[in-house]
Design a protein around this nucleic acid. Sequence first.
DNA 1: AAGTGGTCTAGACCACGAT
DNA 2: TCGTGGTCTAGACCACTTG
Lengths: 262, 262
Amino acid sequence: MSQTASQSVPPSSPSSTPSASAEVAPAFSPLYQQIKALIMRGLQGGEWKPGEAIPSELDLAARFKVSQGTVRKAIDELAAENLLVRRQGKGTFVATHNEQKIQYRFLRLQPEEGAPQPMQREFLDCRRLRAPADIVRSLDLRSGDMVVQLRRTLSQAGRPVVLDDIWLPGSLFKGLTAERLTEYRGPLYSLFESEFGVRMIRAEEKIRAIAADRSVAALLGVADGAPLLSVERLSLTYGDRPVELRRGLYNTTQHHYRNELS
Amino acid sequence: MSQTASQSVPPSSPSSTPSASAEVAPAFSPLYQQIKALIMRGLQGGEWKPGEAIPSELDLAARFKVSQGTVRKAIDELAAENLLVRRQGKGTFVATHNEQKIQYRFLRLQPEEGAPQPMQREFLDCRRLRAPADIVRSLDLRSGDMVVQLRRTLSQAGRPVVLDDIWLPGSLFKGLTAERLTEYRGPLYSLFESEFGVRMIRAEEKIRAIAADRSVAALLGVADGAPLLSVERLSLTYGDRPVELRRGLYNTTQHHYRNELS
DNA sequence: AAGTGGTCTAGACCACGAT
DNA sequence: TCGTGGTCTAGACCACTTG
């Protein structure tokens, strides 16, 4: 804590926070935000792995020399951002993509009627190539960098519903092969998390309606020119660094994309 | 407060909260939740109107005979749900749909490039009729109830981008006419709020891709069969009562629907 | 019974906005 | 200068989970 920890003794200089040089704009942040940043750094650095418990509030309070209430507020915000999950009586846990409950944390597609069903995956392609210009831009790479490109479908009752094209930075996904993909049980993000230490925290989606071209129509089993939902998702990890670009095409005759506004 | 307000004197009976009969499941809720419910009742009852300030935290604490911290936590949650807006140094205000800043609180459509522009509205239709069966179901009406049906477009640079069909319970929107609609400046929800006291708090959307039929294609200036984004929105007011069904068709050649996941 | 998160209180001080 | 929300603390007790 650069900010004086014991509030009862006021700091002599009012702006005692910043790191002396370079920094100009922030100049101050509440204690709990600093604690939040420290916890986040621990998460990013792998001090606590997904699914594991972080230290108790009292432990963290002792470690950081602040009150439990301050730690609590930091954790509250991290829990609100879905980075942590509180469980009363048990502890606070690092969020993960392989919870038994919500299978696809980011997939908003729902069947028109009835409860969400598990989907069957099939991988059609997995290759490494130099990133095309648009991918370079989206993933914030340098031109010439390698990317892994995947293509897969999600099916329900034998009918393909989703066709995903996925691009991943080659530097982060060194040993990713078609084999690893097909043999892995569970969501892709779960594999990314456990095998490559890449944790998707947040994502931004751009949604459009497009017409199926011939090749896509064949893969999804729809008519040429049929309307499809185009979902372009950019997934981000800690520090809002982009680590996946996904272009999905959804057949929405039996499904819809569900969203809540407030 | 049915729960004992002064914590220092513990209640003799541990389960002194519930209202004796009928209720079985809840049987207990934290003090701040009860305060939250009371504030929400004030909002619903119109004690404080949209845009107005609610009493200060200390005032509310005094009124409800609880500490400021408890009121604070209640308000925190209401602010997180976008029912209230905190403004440091000024007070806490009732959320409204006619803020200068975000013009369309619920419209997620963005131009492909450049900043969001204001859109031109045009009303094509406004009529009262007996609710069709599907509308009855969605709006939780009784069969035979009247509804107001609107049709309008939103355009940008002279090109129509959105075609909305809107259904509203007739009982809530008694004096709604085409004139009122065309002469009103500002978002529809702002008009609903100020003229009819109907406040949209939350909404659920189902999104699909569909092909434009002939009449729609003509209105949106696209080819017959062109893919369009179909956005079905159910808007809810206090107590999750549905008060609007909106079927929108978006031309997403120059725009996209933006969403954030976490 | 022990340990965890969850609630509640009371009081201090800070930062912001209006006066 | 005053009133507002925002931060921080310290301590009490409650509710849930595990041994």
